[in-house]
Design a protein around this nucleic acid. Sequence first.
RNA 1: GGGCCCAUGGUCUAGCGGUUAUGACGUCACCUUUACAAGGUGGAUGUCCCCGGUUCGAAUCCGGGUGGGCCCACCA
Length: 795
Amino acid sequence: MESKIAEKSWSKEFEKAFYEKWKNNPLYAFRRNSDKPVYSIDTPPPYVNTPVHMGHAATYSIMDMIARFRRMMGYEVLFPLGLDRNGLPIEMAAEKKFKTKFNRVSREEFLLMCNKVLEESSAESVDSFMKLGIAFNSWNKGTGLGEIYETDSNDYRTLTQETFIDLYNQGLIYEDDRINNYCPGCMTTIADAEIDYKDIPSTFNDVVFTVKETGEKIIIGTTRPELIPSCGMVIFNPEDKRYQHLNGKTAVTPLFNTEVPIKAHPLAEIDKGTGLVMMCSAGDLSDIRFFREMGIAPIISISIDGTMNDNAGFLKGMKIKDAREKMIQDLKADNLLVKQVPVTHRTPICERSKHEIEFISMKEYYLKQVEFKDKMLALADKMNFYDESIKQIYLDWINSVSIDWPISRRRYYATEVPLWYCNGCGQVIVPPKGKYYKPWKEKPPVKECPECHSKEFTGDTRVLDTWFDSSNSPLYVLKYSRDKEFFEKNNRCSLRPQGKEIIRTWLYYTVFKDFLLTKKCIFKDVWIHHHIIDEKGIKMSKSLGNMIDPHDILEKFGAEPFRLWCAVEGDITKTDLRCSYERIEGAGKTLTKLWNVARFVSMFEDPSGDVKLSDTDKWVLNEINELVKLSRARYEKYDFHTPSLELRHFIWETFSSHYLELVKNRAYNDNKLFLKEEQNGALFTLHYCLETLLKLLAPIIPFATAKLYEEIKEKDIHSEKFPKVADNYEISFKKEDIVELNGAIWKAKKDAQISLKAPVKELILSHKLKGAEKDIMQAHSVEKIKFDDKVEVKV
RNA sequence: GGGCCCAUGGUCUAGCGGUUAUGACGUCACCUUUACAAGGUGGAUGUCCCCGGUUCGAAUCCGGGUGGGCCCACCA
């Protein structure tokens, strides 16, 4: 007998024809006027100037499983691809490529360099997604529903500016002169979320201060002696017995001879250093909070370019590190430095450029967020977190928010702050919404100032934080303010899939900002993934040389073994997944098995005449029905792991080893030992199980299932409905009974060293299996059969 | 310093109050059995991290350790 399927196994070569077909498949396009319910996914826009890495490959594949499942469940699925092109990474790439700094060339020139970098970043990542079989709505760039969008497009930036204008007009954005995290490398203020910490070796210097009232010499330990001119207070712990007499007195700083109060404050720890701390208005965040608390005017001695300013007296003009050296030398010369101890100091550094953070005062725009903390906590309950345990990270972050969100940046390749200022009276000119504004080079939308009638204006030169852009992604994909009718019907996004590490940024800022704009919780479900790590459990990194490139995987094995591996290997919402070539290749064996199961089944026609099901048929139909039940329930909860393991087990064990072996003879029916309708029972069941199995697997392995379904049914499996749960048949035995019986027979023949085809002289088995008697006799060449309460095989 | 997560044969993993502790990869022996040698059958490999507790009974629940990871944090 000939199988419909000629090829002996699944090959990655089959994939190409499919992704080229899918590229323009209207099945995956988003139909705005469809009457199906909408399921919308706020796909994370990957950064364009780095190729797709293992984490992307795995998580987008799982997102695709989600999208494909929902599509089969009858939803109109909005699954667009976005491309992130804004912000620092592009600027840094441009700086590297053209060996310059953004502030060394004109803004105009620098933006051209950024564009150059972006042009060359090409469509590589888009191509990778296609090869992975991701069924995005569209592969064309555009502004329509479901089309590929770019975060630096005029349309996207227009929306970002619209949200700024709305929030500004609501009075939620204000400009304030405040101490900020400042990165001397990026030359811009950065948000708390952009700070990293690193242990940097430093020196603890014991410096001599004088008590003005008594002339007593007191010793203060500091790692930042150059900040002595910024010292605003000296503190000791209220419990510290050594210093009680200093309370209320005045300390005189060395070399600068400024007078500062001495007070007790719990911030000082008794055991640390000498127990006395000099509080400077530029040390780190704790100092800043302290100054705010105590209401002391900060003395800023570091300027924007990272050098000391007028307040630093004789240190003026020096770089911070030089100033520190100079201070140490001068203190030594005057015998004011009594001890130096090397320490490692946990230092705040810039997440991107790795420079040590300085704290300086600048004018910045802020979006009010502190006053919304309670609302944000309440809103968290409106979202379902997958996995639920991850919610804690989100709540912890909300609870820890202590200052408003600084949203302006002093960089170039980002969305401009859409404001002008009147040169006459300083009046802020807020433009109307609906256009992309570049105030640094454009004229304002008004001819003269409404206040003072001046005709001269200055455009704002700052840009917005990249998270201010990113936080409108669900609004953008749902066409908020672009397609009012659509957004009204779909004003919440079904799913935000994203990484665990950006909960405090992308997730928090999106929920927060979109709440301010829409008064709703923008997401219904949030799917948070952990990471792909190497086979030893270590983070993949270029420097360690343990990277696995998904392009290699695609080259070697194709998308399918990888996609199956993604599902089978573990639940990425609960734990990191360890990745190795070996295990991905191993996952591919299941594809071969599935392929051969399909080849076998397709040797037979799906019967059209009378069908009589034996208990064996009913049993396996119940088994597959349980899989339908499980898959539906778990896929619904974004769990592809549990069903994929069960499906794999079904393919290898339940279906192949047990059912198939039992009914082979009936399916062939060469000796006409079975009635036609009995044979049909096997054929029907074989086809039914295979088709159902393929449909259950279609979201996970879309290529192989499509190929097989096409061969067998001449239809596109991805247009099919997901199988429904049926009623189970009444039968008297369970899987365990079958497994036990077959195992016993195989073992008996093996022990007797006879062929599996050799006859069983006598078989004693449980009454329960009576309904499968004929299948069992034929499968194992049983000559005589008896029913009892035990299993016994005589060969 | 705080929070969260993890610890099961060589490696990875399931189980989450009663199992002869699941499966995968690897490994060993045997076998061409009309879908599949990218196969089949069978085997070996485990103080389920440690110490206590709850319980008739713990890999599973609780407490405390130890080791590892991630995130957060206000230290001079």
